[in-house]
Design a protein around this nucleic acid. Structure first.
Lengths: 210, 210
DNA sequence: CTTCCTCTTGACCATATGGTCAGGTTGTGA
DNA sequence: TCACAACCTGACCATATGGTCAAGAGGAAG
């Protein structure tokens, strides 16, 4: 597939610029939405002239597409914890921890993803129909197995997954609201820990895993 | 406050046009986001010339603000069920039902709200800091009382509220994703019922209310 | 050193969009 | 019927923005 990419100065510059642009784009898309984001603003934030963006990414759509794909892949891989567990308490507990950590560390990515899906997934519909669909079917089957083995209560695996996504991503997507309700301050280390524990406690007890 | 508004033909037309515009705006803002929405599209969808929009709503911001306020108030009132309950099973169960129903009937409003909050609540920040903060404090106190009375497990009321919001609104905001994972078809009557039951079962058991 | 290719960028263009306005139409109240 | 105000709208304008381009700077390879 991808060439090994020799370690020349050129390639270093290219990689550096592309990731600067991607990082800036993720932030701007998250804050302003696709329509509200401007190439000029992304360029400024990346510290490059606007024309240079168009050298690396021909169009705004293309840049956006790359950002979304990037996020999607990141999320998928972050969910590997799920499989390696012997039962729901560990598996789902670890999954909640992982997703909460992502919400904390990469809220912008989460927002871009949410925005993309809310607007009908114009650029990653194919991924939803293939990769995500397969991923979901696999985890649902695993959960069903746990149920059949009597390791947890008989809940609909799909709706459980939706609940996991919703609850964990909420801390990123609605972070501003949570911050406002927290007296205008971001959640502290302690509060994040409490959030994780609360979520895990309610859900794990809710599915009869503890 | 507001004048009783005599029932003249003028007022009827005004009201008709304003609600047509608001409905169209809600849909367009939900589908395209604030930045992606255009006054022209809203006008077309409302069946009015663009200049007429600006007669009723001076600017795009003003129209957007009205839409968001509208949604916010709708949501607040829809949560009255919460208070009238004797305990968590009824109170929170009814709240979940009500919010799921809103997600089903008014997904556009939910999306606009989500978008507004995700972008830092530029137009309803004051509401978050006053009305929503008070509302949240009140319900948190009520939940705490239930806990103190031994009617449910000792969970952090705030995080429980976040979980309720997240889970129920997810069915509207991420409706497209859910639909895709449902074979491309919207949830049926049966499936909506199952969703409600799943959510209620997990959460109510999770907080020790059943 | 020379050649070639990649990269950089200021200036520029076409278009879309929010918003304006003048003149016309319609309802209202006396 | 008349005068006034509310309402309507096609045409228009200023601006912002995505995208282009030609000329030049900077590495890479021989």
């Amino acid at each position: 597939m991808a060439e090994p990419e020799r370690l020349t100065k050129r390639n270093a510059i290219r990689q550096e610029n592309e990731s600067r642009i991607m990082a800036a784009a993720e932030k701007v898309f998250a804050e302003a939405g696709f329509g509200g984001a401007t190439m000029q603003l992304i360029a400024d934030m990346a510290g490059l002239p606007k024309a240079n963006l168009h050298y690396y990414f021909a169009t705004k759509e293309e840049l956006y597409r790359e950002v979304v794909r990037n996020i999607f892949n990141f999320w998928l891989h972050a969910a590997d914890t799920f499989d390696k567990a012997a039962g729901p308490a560990e598996g789902i507990g670890a999954y909640i921890d992982a997703k909460m950590e992502i919400s904390r560390r990469h809220p912008d990515g989460s927002k871009v993803w949410a925005s993309e899906v809310m607007h009908g997934a114009p650029v990653i519909q194919d991924y939803l129909e293939t990769t995500l669909r397969d991923w979901t079917a696999g985890r649902a089957a695993l959960i069903q197995r746990w149920i059949d083995e009597g390791k947890m209560a008989p809940v609909d695996p799909r709706h459980l997954l939706y609940m996991l996504w919703a609850t964990t991503q909420h801390y990123a997507d609605f972070g501003h609201q949570i911050e406002t309700l927290n007296g205008g301050k971001p959640l502290s280390e302690k509060q994040w820990k409490a959030a994780k524990e609360s979520v895990k406690a309610i859900i794990l007890r809710g599915i009869g895993a503890i």
